[in-house]
Structures are given as structure tokens and as C-alpha cells.
């Protein structure tokens, strides 16, 4: 699989029931330049217009912050990025249990091993503890990670609209339905339960097959990276290899560290006008 040059147009809109006097927002929609992925250009447009401040956060994501102070009933955000993705990396064997469970490693990645609001410790849940047990019996963390993905996919069926942005790993597991965010959280729960450092990756996903010049409806996507003497990516939602179709934007402990958009405003109810992601391979 060769690398791709992708142009991503990510539109987000909100409509408010009442006039909003002020809103404060942060956007994490800029693809990273790291590990072979190269950001070529990025623009962010907001309406009503506002000056944009950017910074790098604790987790290494590029954040764009802006506040809107003109009275408004609608907020529109358009992020356009062009990025080169690397080809699928060659297979690299992972490390051993001994290496992963080394106290130095466990302390270094402690934040990616502890439970969070979204990601509980599967080893503590009678419904999932047996999976963690079986993972630990696998010959190495890599096999355990594959088992985790297998069990998550066996348990959770892809179905939009059942879960929402606040659904936790435990809730998704119980409901048996979910979207990429839920698959990711559920997999993180199992991996961390088995003592394997693992992080949430937020980004975009292009079609499996290259499609040059053809705008396709893409998605804001989430997947998993786990550490076994190096980072390995797995995509539990699609069970696809993570390669040139995946664009990395942000990484963290769970969704709360990497939301594409978060903000507060003063005013009445808001209505999401939807999010669209269009990806064109150049």
C-alpha cells in the first residue's frame, strides 16, 4: 500500500435557539506531522469570523482556539488540510510481556494504563475480566491485542445512533452497539486491564482502496495504538490495517483529551447541524 496525498474538508455547524452573545471554542482538527505523516497545508475558517490562537497541548495535538463576541445564531467551522500519509509500515514484531510489564515502562506510560472517565478497567468487570485473563495467557502482548480486538468486534456491533459522545466503554459493552469511539474505548479497557499501555487516536479515515481525484465522504475516526516496545496501531472498528488511509490528528487517554471541537457559550439550546468530512485523494 503506497502513501497517499489527501485533502480533508471538515465542516461543523451549530444553530442556536437564541442569540448567543459569546462563545469560546477549541478545535483539534489539524493532522499531525509525525511518524511519516506530513502536513502540507491547513486552514481553519469560522463564521462569524474570529481571530484564531493556536498552541500545542500536553498530548502533542495542535489546538486552534477562538472566541466569538458578535451576537450570532449560527456557528460554522471549516477546517481544510492537505496531508501526505505514509505507506503501511512493514511488519515489526512486538515485545514480550516481561518488557511491557517492566516497572519502568509501567511508570513511563502510567497515564495510558489507568482508567479514565470513558475507559474503565475491564479486569474489574465480571463481564470482561475473563477476556483480560485470556489475554494475559496469550504468548505476547501483540497476540493479546488481537484477541482484544476480536472480542470487542464479537461483542459490539457497528450501529450509529445508539450511543453518543458521552458513552463509556462499559456502557458500550453492555449495549452491544456503538461507533468507532465506542470500539476504541472498549478496546482500550481490555488492553489497559492486561497492563498494556494504550492510547486513543483521533483522526480521519479514507476509503480502503485509493481513489485519486474523487471526493469521497470520509469520517472523523478513532482507533487505538498500544505499546509493546514500540507503538502499534489497530483499528477495532473496521479490523483494517492502519496505514495510508488513516490520518492522525490527536492522541490521548480517551475521547476527552482529543475532542475535535469543544466549547462553551452563553445562550439557549443548540442544535447540531451535523458534521461532514470530505476526503479527496490528490
Amino acid at each position: 500500500m503506497a502513501g497517499r496525498r489527501l485533502r480533508i474538508t471538515h465542516r461543523t455547524g451549530y444553530r442556536y435557539a437564541e442569540v448567543v452573545e459569546a462563545s469560546f471554542n477549541e478545535v483539534r482538527m489539524t493532522p499531525m506531522s509525525a511518524e511519516g505523516q506530513l502536513l502540507l497545508s491547513h486552514t481553519l475558517d469560522v463564521l462569524p469570523a474570529a481571530p484564531i490562537q493556536s498552541y500545542t497541548d500536553y498530548w502533542g495535538a495542535h489546538v486552534e482556539a477562538f472566541d466569538v463576541h458578535v451576537p450570532h445564531r449560527m456557528l460554522e467551522i471549516v477546517a481544510i488540510s492537505t496531508v501526505d500519509t505514509p505507506p503501511l509500515p512493514p511488519y515489526r514484531a512486538g515485545g514480550s510481556w516481561l518488557q511491557v510489564h517492566d516497572p519502568v515502562v509501567q511508570d513511563r506510560f502510567v497515564e495510558l494504563l489507568r482508567s479514565t472517565t470513558y475507559v474503565d478497567d475491564a479486569a474489574q468487570d465480571p463481564d470482561r475480566a475473563w477476556i483480560v485473563e485470556r489475554m494475559r495467557e496469550e504468548k505476547d502482548p501483540e497476540s493479546a491485542a488481537h484477541l482484544a480486538t476480536y472480542e470487542v468486534r464479537r461483542r459490539i456491533g457497528y450501529q450509529p445512533g445508539v450511543t453518543d459522545v458521552s458513552t463509556t466503554a462499559a456502557q458500550a459493552w453492555r449495549s452491544g452497539h456503538g461507533v468507532c469511539q465506542d470500539f476504541t474505548h472498549a478496546t482500550l479497557s481490555l488492553l489497559r486491564g492486561a497492563g498494556i499501555p494504550a492510547r486513543y487516536v483521533s483522526g480521519y479515515l479514507h476509503t480502503e482502496e485509493p481513489a485519486v481525484g474523487e471526493p469521497v465522504v470520509g469520517e472523523s475516526h478513532a482507533w487505538v495504538e498500544y505499546w509493546d516496545e514500540g507503538w502499534h496501531a489497530i483499528d477495532p472498528t473496521n479490523d483494517r490495517a492502519v496505514g495510508s488511509a488513516h490520518v492522525i490528528v490527536a492522541r490521548g487517554r480517551d475521547y476527552a483529551d482529543v475532542p475535535p471541537l469543544k466549547g462553551i457559550y452563553a445562550g439557549g439550546q443548540s442544535e447540531g447541524l451535523g458534521v461532514s468530512v470530505e476526503i479527496t485523494q490528490l
Binding site: T56, D57, Y58, W59, V104, D107, V110, E111
Partner: peptide, 21 residues
């Protein structure tokens, strides 16, 4: 440098990653 376990710092309820940088 391993002078303090990372776990002690990152698990502090007053460690605000928002203030990083």
C-alpha cells in the same frame, strides 16, 4: 530522569494538563 515516579505527578488531582506549556 526518574527522580519522582511519573505516576505520582500525573495522578495528582491538581496536576492540570491544561496549564502545560
Amino acid at each position: 530522569d526518574g527522580l519522582i515516579p511519573r505516576s505520582l505527578v500525573t495522578s495528582s488531582t491538581h496536576f492540570h494538563r491544561e496549564a502545560w506549556g
